[in-house]
Structure formats: C-alpha cells, structure tokens
C-alpha cells in the first residue's frame, strides 16, 4: 500500500511527549494506523511512556496499560486472557517496548509469553540503547558505539534477538524501519492476521541518542538498510524472506553501501573517525556486517532460520 493510501485516522494524538524527529513516535503512528481502534497496548518503562504524556492527559487514542520495565509481555498475557473472558478475542493485544525492555530486563517475560503461545504482537522499537535513562548501553547497542556507560565505545557485539525469538518457534516475526512505512504497515497487518505470538522489531534511529540532526530520522533508517547495517525481513512457517533493498543485497543484486557512510553521520561513532580513523574497529564492523549477510544467505539457502 502506498503511503498516501494509509488510513487517515490518527490514533496518536497531537502533543505527544516524544522528541522532535522521534523514530518511535513515527513508527507508532504507522503501527496504529494498521492496528486500528480495536487494540490494547501494554507499554513498559521506556521513551514511549514519556510520549504518552502525564496523567490526566494521554496521547494515545487506544487503551494503554503502562507497566513495569521488565513486565510488558506478562501484562499482555493477562490482558489477552482477560479480554478472552469478555469475549473480545478479536482485540489486538500489543506490547510496545524498547530494546532494553526486550533484549535485557524483559527477556524472561517475553520468552515465557511466547513459549506459552500467547496471542499477541510484541513490538520492539530498537534505538539500540536505554534512552529514557540517558543513553546507556543495552544488549542491542552495536559494537563500537559510544553510550554513557561505554564512553570509549562498546566492546561487545549486540545479541541476535530475532534469532532468539525464532528459536521459540513463533509463527511470525519481522523487522522494519520507520523510513519504509508501507512495509511496516504491511507487516503489522500480517501479524494481526496470524494467531499466536508475533514479534516485530523496528530499528529506531534516535537523534539525541545517536547524535544526529533531528530531521534525518527517516534518512538514517533508510541508510541503515542501504548499508546492510539493518536487514528487513520476515519469518513465517520456518522461512526467512527478505524485503525491499535487503532482498537485493541478499541476492547480491545490489552491493550494500559501505557501512562507514552510515556510521560517520552518527555522533556516537565519532570517536572512530577523529582525531584519527580507527581502521581496526571500522574494519571489524564492516566485516561483521558482511559476515551477517553470508549467514543470512546460508540460512535462506538451507531453509534454516
């Protein structure tokens, strides 16, 4: 569906507390267009709680249960069961959580909910750090990135959260970016059509956290795809399917742009470029990305996800 044909109804009201250029708010707006009004959200501690606004106001036009940081998937379990009792199985139960609430502190509850085949959509907007508390590292922070707990750059790789989810044998998972709203819209709609636990992870380039101008959110998310730093794909019936530019990168029809083009626009990687270029780390990041793509190709070839 073309962007101009997305539903007109706005379920995020004006006056949200997000920063200008907030990737999460942008993605949320598209996501809610796909979900529609018959939706209940569970939101753990994260930026989205700030976007909601403070009592007695709210920026959301769907019911929201704000819940403790590590607890959103468990709250969704209870919500789904309660709505079932009320005969409202058709209501979308959706978690909207950050990467900290997903990769780290909320992993146990998420794993439990997916293993129990809870009928819900878990959406992680991944800004690759704890932005709410002031840009600390998370399990999703990429290697080399500056945060306020990794002043000289993170020394470990991020974990492959989507693979962890797939290992649970869930029926559907997908990745998305705010820069391709029609792709995100389609994936949310797809998730809604499937029973069981669905996981969608949205890369969320965050201007204040990543240190880039706030009018560049959309471009940054597209550049992540073009450089292969982020892969757009879906997982269904045990199959991985790549989408848009990621598909042509996978099929080697397009060369990914050098990852440097993506890194150098972000202040969180500035120490890799000045005062001197850190060739070793830059090369490691590039090689790691290419290796990820080789792994994706093998997975698609062999039909193992």
């Amino acid at each position: 569906m073309a962007v101009k044909n997305l539903p007109r109804e706005e379920l995020v009201r004006p006056g949200s507390g997000g920063c200008p250029g907030c990737p999460s708010s942008l993605a949320l707006r598209v996501t809610l267009k796909a979900l529609g009004k018959n939706t209940v959200f569970a939101i753990p501690a994260c930026c989205a709680v700030v976007c909601l606004g403070a009592y007695p106001k709210t920026a959301f036009d769907v019911p929201v249960v704000s819940i403790a940081f590590e607890a959103s998937a468990a709250a969704a379990s209870g919500l789904a069961a309660g709505l079932k009792r009320l005969g409202k199985q058709d209501t979308n139960v959706v978690v909207w959580a950050g990467d900290g609430g997903t990769y780290d502190i909320g992993l146990q509850a998420l794993s439990g909910a997916v293993e129990r085949e809870t009928d819900f959509i878990y959406i992680c907007y991944n800004n690759e750090m704890y932005s709410n508390t002031g840009i600390q590292r998370s399990g999703a922070t990429p290697y080399g990135a500056w945060t306020t707990t990794t002043w000289t750059g993170k020394t470990e790789q991020k974990k492959d959260m989507p693979a962890i989810l797939r290992a649970h044998g869930l029926p559907y998972m997908a990745t998305a970016v705010p820069g391709y709203p029609e792709d995100l819209f389609r994936k949310v709609r797809k998730a809604m059509s499937i029973r069981g636990s669905k996981y969608i992870e949205i890369l969320a380039p965050c201007p204040p956290g990543w240190r880039f101008p706030m009018d560049k959110t959309v471009e940054m998310s597209k550049l992540a795809v073009d450089t292969g730093a982020w892969a757009l794909y879906e997982y269904e019936n045990g199959q991985l399917n790549f989408n848009l530019k990621s598909k042509s990168i996978l099929e080697k029809k397009t060369e990914p742009k050098p990852i440097e083009e993506y890194l150098k626009l972000q202040g969180r990687f500035a120490h890799l470029f000045k005062p001197d270029r850190n060739e070793q780390v830059l090369d490691e990041i590039q090689q790691r990305s290419l290796a990820d793509w080789e792994r994706f190709r093998k997975q698609v070839e062999c039909g193992v996800a």
Binding site: A42, V65, I67, A68, E70, A71, A73, A74, A75, A76, S77, G78, L79, A80, A81, G82, L83, R85, L86, Q108, A109, S111, G112, E115, R116
Partner: peptide, 19 residues
Amino acid sequence: IRVESEHSAMTAVIGAAVT
C-alpha cells in the same frame, strides 16, 4: 496461565484485572 515467574504471575494478574 502457568507463568514463568512470580513477577510475571503478579503482572499477568494485574493485566487480567484491568480487563
């Protein structure tokens, strides 16, 4: 719901109670 922890037990109960 046979939850995976007591933290989730209380959270799930809260989630159901709000319905």
